[in-house]
Protein backbone atom coordinates (compact mmCIF):
# COMPACT_ATOMS: atom_id res chain seq x y z
CA UNK A 1 0.00 0.00 0.00
CA UNK A 2 1.36 3.38 -0.97
CA UNK A 3 -0.35 5.65 1.53
CA UNK A 4 -0.04 4.63 5.18
CA UNK A 5 -2.30 7.45 6.38
CA UNK A 6 -5.21 9.00 4.51
CA UNK A 7 -7.25 11.70 6.23
CA UNK A 8 -10.07 13.45 4.41
CA UNK A 9 -12.72 15.94 5.49
CA UNK A 10 -11.87 15.30 9.14
CA UNK A 11 -14.06 17.31 11.50
CA UNK A 12 -14.36 17.36 15.24
CA UNK A 13 -16.79 19.39 17.33
CA UNK A 14 -17.05 19.68 21.09
CA UNK A 15 -20.56 21.01 21.53
CA UNK A 16 -20.67 24.30 19.64
CA UNK A 17 -16.90 24.52 19.38
CA UNK A 18 -15.52 23.30 16.08
CA UNK A 19 -12.03 22.08 16.90
CA UNK A 20 -11.33 20.67 13.42
CA UNK A 21 -13.03 22.16 10.38
CA UNK A 22 -12.22 19.69 7.63
CA UNK A 23 -8.65 18.40 7.49
CA UNK A 24 -7.18 16.54 4.49
CA UNK A 25 -3.72 15.04 4.18
CA UNK A 26 -1.95 11.83 3.27
CA UNK A 27 1.32 10.27 4.41
CA UNK A 28 3.16 7.78 2.24
CA UNK A 29 4.55 4.61 3.74
CA UNK A 30 8.02 5.25 5.18
CA UNK A 31 7.58 9.04 5.25
CA UNK A 32 7.74 11.48 8.13
CA UNK A 33 4.92 14.02 8.38
CA UNK A 34 5.34 16.95 10.75
CA UNK A 35 2.16 18.54 12.02
CA UNK A 36 2.83 22.15 13.03
CA UNK A 37 0.67 24.89 14.41
CA UNK A 38 0.11 27.18 17.39
CA UNK A 39 -1.13 25.76 20.70
CA UNK A 40 -4.84 25.10 20.51
CA UNK A 41 -4.81 24.85 16.71
CA UNK A 42 -6.04 21.26 16.72
CA UNK A 43 -2.79 19.28 16.41
CA UNK A 44 -3.34 17.08 19.43
CA UNK A 45 -7.03 16.59 18.58
CA UNK A 46 -6.00 15.40 15.11
CA UNK A 47 -3.33 13.07 16.44
CA UNK A 48 -5.64 11.66 19.13
CA UNK A 49 -8.30 10.86 16.54
CA UNK A 50 -5.65 9.10 14.46
CA UNK A 51 -4.42 7.21 17.52
CA UNK A 52 -7.94 6.04 18.31
CA UNK A 53 -8.43 8.05 21.54
CA UNK A 54 -11.17 10.33 20.14
CA UNK A 55 -14.11 9.82 17.85
CA UNK A 56 -14.32 12.05 14.80
CA UNK A 57 -17.48 14.06 14.12
CA UNK A 58 -17.23 13.72 10.33
CA UNK A 59 -14.86 12.71 7.55
CA UNK A 60 -12.79 9.59 7.04
CA UNK A 61 -9.51 8.38 8.52
CA UNK A 62 -7.76 5.35 7.10
CA UNK A 63 -4.50 4.17 8.61
CA UNK A 64 -2.98 0.93 7.31
CA UNK A 65 -6.42 0.27 5.84
CA UNK A 66 -8.13 0.56 9.24
CA UNK A 67 -10.43 3.13 10.79
CA UNK A 68 -8.77 3.80 14.20
CA UNK A 69 -12.21 4.14 15.80
CA UNK A 70 -13.18 0.63 14.82
CA UNK A 71 -9.82 -1.14 14.52
CA UNK A 72 -9.65 -1.97 18.24
CA UNK A 73 -6.73 -4.06 19.41
CA UNK A 74 -5.98 -5.27 15.87
CA UNK A 75 -5.19 -1.64 15.01
CA UNK A 76 -3.27 -1.03 18.26
CA UNK A 77 -1.02 -4.00 17.38
CA UNK A 78 0.23 -2.10 14.35
CA UNK A 79 0.83 1.40 15.71
CA UNK A 80 3.14 2.88 18.33
CA UNK A 81 2.09 5.92 20.35
CA UNK A 82 4.28 8.41 22.20
CA UNK A 83 2.00 10.72 24.17
CA UNK A 84 2.81 14.30 25.07
CA UNK A 85 2.91 13.96 28.84
CA UNK A 86 3.03 10.54 30.27
CA UNK A 87 4.91 8.98 33.14
CA UNK A 88 6.08 5.41 33.60
CA UNK A 89 5.82 3.31 36.81
CA UNK A 90 8.71 4.96 38.67
CA UNK A 91 9.91 2.05 40.82
CA UNK A 92 10.41 -0.46 38.02
CA UNK A 93 13.53 -1.02 35.95
CA UNK A 94 13.80 -0.12 32.27
CA UNK A 95 14.03 -3.74 31.16
CA UNK A 96 11.09 -4.77 33.39
CA UNK A 97 8.83 -2.13 31.90
CA UNK A 98 9.79 -3.22 28.37
CA UNK A 99 9.36 -6.96 29.11
CA UNK A 100 5.91 -6.24 30.51
CA UNK A 101 4.99 -4.41 27.34
CA UNK A 102 6.19 -7.31 25.20
CA UNK A 103 3.40 -9.52 26.61
CA UNK A 104 0.75 -7.20 25.11
CA UNK A 105 1.69 -7.89 21.49
CA UNK A 106 1.45 -10.95 19.28
CA UNK A 107 4.60 -10.22 17.24
CA UNK A 108 6.78 -7.96 19.40
CA UNK A 109 10.32 -6.77 18.75
CA UNK A 110 13.12 -8.23 20.85
CA UNK A 111 13.79 -6.21 24.03
CA UNK A 112 17.56 -6.15 23.39
CA UNK A 113 16.97 -4.88 19.88
CA UNK A 114 14.79 -2.04 21.22
CA UNK A 115 17.38 -1.12 23.87
CA UNK A 116 20.02 -1.06 21.15
CA UNK A 117 17.90 1.02 18.78
CA UNK A 118 17.02 3.63 21.41
CA UNK A 119 20.46 3.75 23.01
CA UNK A 120 19.23 2.50 26.37
CA UNK A 121 21.49 -0.56 26.62
CA UNK A 122 23.51 0.95 29.49
CA UNK A 123 20.33 1.86 31.35
CA UNK A 124 18.56 -1.50 31.10
CA UNK A 125 18.71 -2.15 34.85
CA UNK A 126 18.17 1.43 35.95
CA UNK A 127 14.97 2.29 37.81
CA UNK A 128 12.69 4.55 35.79
CA UNK A 129 12.67 7.26 38.47
CA UNK A 130 16.47 7.56 38.22
CA UNK A 131 16.40 8.33 34.50
CA UNK A 132 16.80 11.95 33.39
CA UNK A 133 13.84 13.59 31.67
CA UNK A 134 15.42 13.05 28.27
CA UNK A 135 16.06 9.37 28.92
CA UNK A 136 12.50 8.85 30.21
CA UNK A 137 11.30 10.32 26.93
CA UNK A 138 13.61 7.89 25.14
CA UNK A 139 11.99 5.08 27.12
CA UNK A 140 8.59 6.43 25.99
CA UNK A 141 9.76 5.92 22.43
CA UNK A 142 11.18 2.50 23.27
CA UNK A 143 7.79 1.46 24.70
CA UNK A 144 6.04 2.63 21.55
CA UNK A 145 8.35 0.40 19.48
CA UNK A 146 7.72 -2.83 21.38
CA UNK A 147 4.90 -3.96 19.10
CA UNK A 148 7.06 -3.51 15.98
CA UNK A 149 4.72 -0.77 14.73
CA UNK A 150 4.19 0.15 11.09
CA UNK A 151 3.00 3.65 12.01
CA UNK A 152 4.45 5.69 14.90
CA UNK A 153 2.79 8.77 16.42
CA UNK A 154 5.09 11.18 18.25
CA UNK A 155 3.43 14.06 20.08
CA UNK A 156 6.16 16.64 20.74
CA UNK A 157 8.84 13.98 21.17
CA UNK A 158 11.81 16.24 22.00
CA UNK A 159 10.27 19.07 24.03
CA UNK A 160 12.72 20.13 26.74
CA UNK A 161 15.69 18.28 25.23
CA UNK A 162 19.19 19.71 25.06
CA UNK A 163 20.55 20.03 21.49
CA UNK A 164 22.64 16.87 21.52
CA UNK A 165 19.80 14.76 22.95
CA UNK A 166 17.54 16.18 20.24
CA UNK A 167 19.98 15.19 17.50
CA UNK A 168 20.25 11.68 18.96
CA UNK A 169 16.47 11.35 18.87
CA UNK A 170 16.39 12.53 15.29
CA UNK A 171 18.89 9.81 14.39
CA UNK A 172 16.65 7.21 16.01
CA UNK A 173 13.60 8.48 14.12
CA UNK A 174 15.53 8.41 10.83
CA UNK A 175 16.55 4.83 11.51
CA UNK A 176 12.91 3.91 12.13
CA UNK A 177 11.92 5.41 8.78
CA UNK A 178 14.71 3.62 6.98
CA UNK A 179 13.11 0.41 8.28
CA UNK A 180 9.96 1.36 6.36
CA UNK A 181 7.96 2.71 9.29
CA UNK A 182 5.75 5.76 8.83
CA UNK A 183 6.03 8.58 11.36
CA UNK A 184 3.59 11.34 12.20
CA UNK A 185 4.99 13.89 14.62
CA UNK A 186 3.86 17.17 16.11
CA UNK A 187 6.45 19.70 17.14
CA UNK A 188 7.03 23.33 17.98
CA UNK A 189 10.62 23.18 16.72
CA UNK A 190 11.00 24.21 13.10
CA UNK A 191 14.51 22.78 12.91
CA UNK A 192 13.01 19.44 13.92
CA UNK A 193 10.50 19.59 11.07
CA UNK A 194 13.23 20.79 8.69
CA UNK A 195 15.56 17.94 9.67
CA UNK A 196 13.10 15.07 9.80
CA UNK A 197 9.99 15.74 7.79
CA UNK A 198 9.34 14.74 4.20
CA UNK A 199 6.16 16.75 4.44
CA UNK A 200 4.92 19.53 6.68
CA UNK A 201 1.30 20.38 7.46
CA UNK A 202 0.47 23.61 9.29
CA UNK A 203 -2.83 23.74 11.17
CA UNK A 204 -4.33 26.92 12.55
CA UNK A 205 -7.78 27.26 14.10
CA UNK A 206 -8.77 23.76 13.05
CA UNK A 207 -7.84 24.16 9.40
CA UNK A 208 -4.84 23.37 7.26
CA UNK A 209 -3.32 26.69 6.23
CA UNK A 210 -0.31 25.31 4.35
CA UNK A 211 1.22 22.01 3.42
CA UNK A 212 4.24 20.91 1.40
CA UNK A 213 7.83 19.83 1.78
CA UNK A 214 9.91 21.83 4.27
CA UNK A 215 11.75 23.36 1.27
CA UNK A 216 8.72 24.54 -0.67
CA UNK A 217 6.21 25.28 2.11
CA UNK A 218 4.22 28.44 1.48
CA UNK A 219 6.30 29.21 -1.65
CA UNK A 220 9.47 29.31 0.40
CA UNK A 221 11.59 28.21 -2.59
CA UNK A 222 10.30 31.01 -4.79
CA UNK A 223 10.17 33.68 -2.09
CA UNK A 224 12.48 36.68 -2.30
CA UNK A 225 16.06 36.12 -1.18
CA UNK A 226 17.20 38.45 1.53
CA UNK A 227 20.64 40.06 1.14
CA UNK A 228 21.90 42.03 4.14
CA UNK A 229 25.18 43.79 4.88
CA UNK A 230 26.42 46.65 6.99
CA UNK A 231 28.23 49.72 5.84
CA UNK A 232 29.99 52.47 7.84
CA UNK A 233 29.10 55.55 5.77
CA UNK A 234 25.61 56.11 4.42
CA UNK A 235 27.05 58.57 1.89
CA UNK A 236 28.42 55.59 -0.05
CA UNK A 237 24.93 54.20 -0.45
CA UNK A 238 24.05 56.88 -2.96
CA UNK A 239 25.75 54.84 -5.62
CA UNK A 240 24.27 51.48 -4.53
CA UNK A 241 23.05 49.77 -7.73
CA UNK A 242 20.11 47.84 -6.19
CA UNK A 243 16.90 48.93 -4.47
CA UNK A 244 17.36 48.66 -0.72
CA UNK A 245 16.20 49.72 2.72
CA UNK A 246 18.50 51.16 5.38
CA UNK A 247 18.36 50.87 9.13
CA UNK A 248 20.68 53.03 11.22
CA UNK A 249 22.63 51.33 13.96
CA UNK A 250 25.09 52.81 16.47
CA UNK A 251 28.10 53.41 14.22
CA UNK A 252 27.01 51.82 10.97
CA UNK A 253 23.98 51.21 8.79
CA UNK A 254 22.30 47.89 8.09
CA UNK A 255 21.26 47.50 4.46
CA UNK A 256 18.56 45.01 3.44
CA UNK A 257 17.70 43.96 -0.09
CA UNK A 258 14.71 41.76 -0.96
CA UNK A 259 15.89 40.19 -4.18
CA UNK A 260 13.97 38.13 -6.69
CA UNK A 261 17.07 37.71 -8.88
CA UNK A 262 19.82 37.26 -6.30
CA UNK A 263 22.57 36.17 -8.70
CA UNK A 264 22.30 39.33 -10.83
CA UNK A 265 21.89 41.59 -7.81
CA UNK A 266 24.91 40.11 -6.05
CA UNK A 267 26.98 40.53 -9.17
CA UNK A 268 26.03 44.23 -9.37
CA UNK A 269 26.77 44.68 -5.67
CA UNK A 270 30.20 43.07 -5.87
CA UNK A 271 31.15 45.23 -8.84
CA UNK A 272 30.11 48.31 -6.82
CA UNK A 273 31.99 47.21 -3.70
CA UNK A 274 35.18 46.40 -5.63
CA UNK A 275 34.97 49.52 -7.80
CA UNK A 276 34.55 51.94 -4.92
CA UNK A 277 36.73 50.16 -2.37
CA UNK A 278 33.85 49.59 0.07
CA UNK A 279 34.13 46.56 2.33
CA UNK A 280 30.68 45.50 3.52
CA UNK A 281 30.37 43.87 6.96
CA UNK A 282 28.22 40.92 8.02
CA UNK A 283 27.31 39.93 4.47
CA UNK A 284 24.43 37.48 4.58
CA UNK A 285 22.38 35.90 1.80
CA UNK A 286 19.41 33.82 2.90
CA UNK A 287 16.18 32.23 1.81
CA UNK A 288 13.42 32.65 4.39
CA UNK A 289 13.77 29.85 6.95
CA UNK A 290 10.97 27.38 7.68
CA UNK A 291 10.44 29.34 10.87
CA UNK A 292 10.03 32.60 8.91
CA UNK A 293 7.45 30.90 6.68
CA UNK A 294 5.68 29.36 9.66
CA UNK A 295 5.41 32.72 11.42
CA UNK A 296 4.23 34.43 8.24
CA UNK A 297 1.59 31.77 7.57
CA UNK A 298 0.26 31.51 11.11
CA UNK A 299 0.22 35.31 11.48
CA UNK A 300 -1.85 35.59 8.30
CA UNK A 301 -4.23 32.95 9.55
CA UNK A 302 -4.69 34.83 12.83
CA UNK A 303 -6.26 37.58 10.73
CA UNK A 304 -8.80 35.13 9.28
Amino acid sequence: MDNAIVVSGLRKSYGDLEALKGIDFTVKTGEVLALLGPNGAGKTTTVEILEGYRKKSAGTVEILGEDPERGGSRYKERVGIVLQECSIDPFLRVVEVLRQRVTFYSRPLDVDEILELTGLVDKRNEKVKRLSGGLQRRLDLALALVGNPEVIFLDEPTTGFDPSARHESWDIIRTLCSQGRTVLLTTHYMDEAQNLADKVVIIAKGQIVAQGTPETLGGRDSAATQITFSISSTADLERCPVTHTVESRENMSLVTIESTSPVEDLSELTKWWLGSGISPGNLNVSQPSLEDMYLRITRDSEAL
Partner: peptide
Protein backbone atom coordinates in the same frame (compact mmCIF):
# COMPACT_ATOMS: atom_id res chain seq x y z
CA UNK B 1 -3.55 11.76 36.02
CA UNK B 2 0.05 10.90 35.13
CA UNK B 3 -1.04 9.35 31.83
CA UNK B 4 -0.16 5.74 32.68
CA UNK B 5 -3.75 4.60 32.02
CA UNK B 6 -3.90 6.53 28.77
CA UNK B 7 -0.74 4.83 27.61
CA UNK B 8 -2.24 1.41 28.42
CA UNK B 9 -5.33 2.38 26.37
CA UNK B 10 -3.02 2.90 23.38
CA UNK B 11 -1.86 -0.73 23.43
CA UNK B 12 -3.66 -3.93 22.41
CA UNK B 13 -3.93 -5.02 26.08
CA UNK B 14 -7.69 -5.48 26.73
Amino acid sequence: ESGILKRIKGTPLP
